[in-house]
């Protein structure tokens, strides 16, 4: 009897504190010729618990850059806060907004500086390049990044990305003889694909749903503005009047 007692006392039961959790949700971005679309759902969850039906994952950084963050929400919010702080310092030093390719490199150094205690966040940066083209940059949690035309990340990445491969890159499709596939899709097509992607992900993934926020960044004097005017639920967020323009489209998703 004394033996068993001392045995149980000598090994106090302990567990390490886990500083991470996963908060679900999915984000996605698609670049057009002179625009960029960045979207995310608004559900925040932990395990089977829906914490809130409205917690934004997509943030306007400048009039030409929008950042979507997905993974551990506390890290995500802190990361956006720090990126914004660095962009403000840049503004004070240079009297202009940081170009998007510079923001992308900034994000990579900020992520890599936490290489051994990472921000558990997948970032997708969308916006307009200095040459007026639409851009999407995607990152892993420790800063690997590349510029591409489209990217999905988060809980339903595996559902959405192959769909986008097919519909954006026309993978596994051959054009009719004598024709070719467009390199960039028009804004209306891109918006339809984004909405379809999220309704599909909502249907088959429990961590996706509740609401959808689609940010649209238009290059200076982009003709795509015409198609955006009559989109349901659109509102403008632009802060200046002679440059790129930022819009957000808000939609409902199923709540079950």
């Amino acid at each position: 009897m004394p033996d068993t007692l001392s045995l149980s006392q000598s090994q106090p039961q302990q567990h390490a504190f886990n500083p991470y959790t996963e908060n679900g949700g999915t984000i996605l971005a698609i670049a057009g010729a002179d625009f960029s679309v960045i979207a995310g759902d608004t559900r925040q969850s932990e395990g089977y618990n829906i914490q809130t039906r409205y917690a934004p994952k997509v943030f306007r950084l400048t009039d030409k850059a929008v950042l979507a963050v997905n993974g551990f929400a506390a890290d995500g919010n802190m990361f956006v806060k720090k990126v914004r702080q660095r962009l403000e310092w840049y503004r004070h030093a240079h009297a202009k907004d940081m170009p998007i390719r510079a923001i992308a490199r900034l994000i990579q150094t900020m992520l890599y500086s936490r290489r051994f205690f990472p921000y558990y966040v997948y970032n997708i940066l969308g916006g307009i390049e200095e040459d007026g083209t639409g851009a999407v940059y995607s990152f892993d949690p420790v800063g690997s990044y590349e510029r591409e035309a489209c990217r999905a990340a988060g809980a339903a990445q595996s559902l959405v990305q192959p769909f986008l491969d097919n519909q954006i890159y026309f993978k596994n499709q051959t054009p009719a003889p004598g024709t070719s596939f467009p390199r960039h899709l028009p804004l209306s097509t891109v918006l339809s694909l984004v909405i379809d992607s999220f309704t599909s992900a909502t249907e088959r993934h429990i961590e996706v749903g509740d609401g959808l926020e689609i940010y649209v960044v238009l290059a200076k004097n982009s003709p795509s503005i015409q198609g955006l005017r009559d989109v349901r639920g659109v509102s403008e967020l632009t802060s200046t009047d002679d440059g790129e323009r930022v819009f957000v489209v808000r939609r409902e998703l199923k709540k079950d």
Binding site: P19, Y20, E46, T52, A74
Partner: peptide
């Protein structure tokens, strides 16, 4: 305790 925030 993780710094997770939300509002509803």
């Amino acid at each position: 305790l993780l710094g997770t925030t939300y509002s509803a």
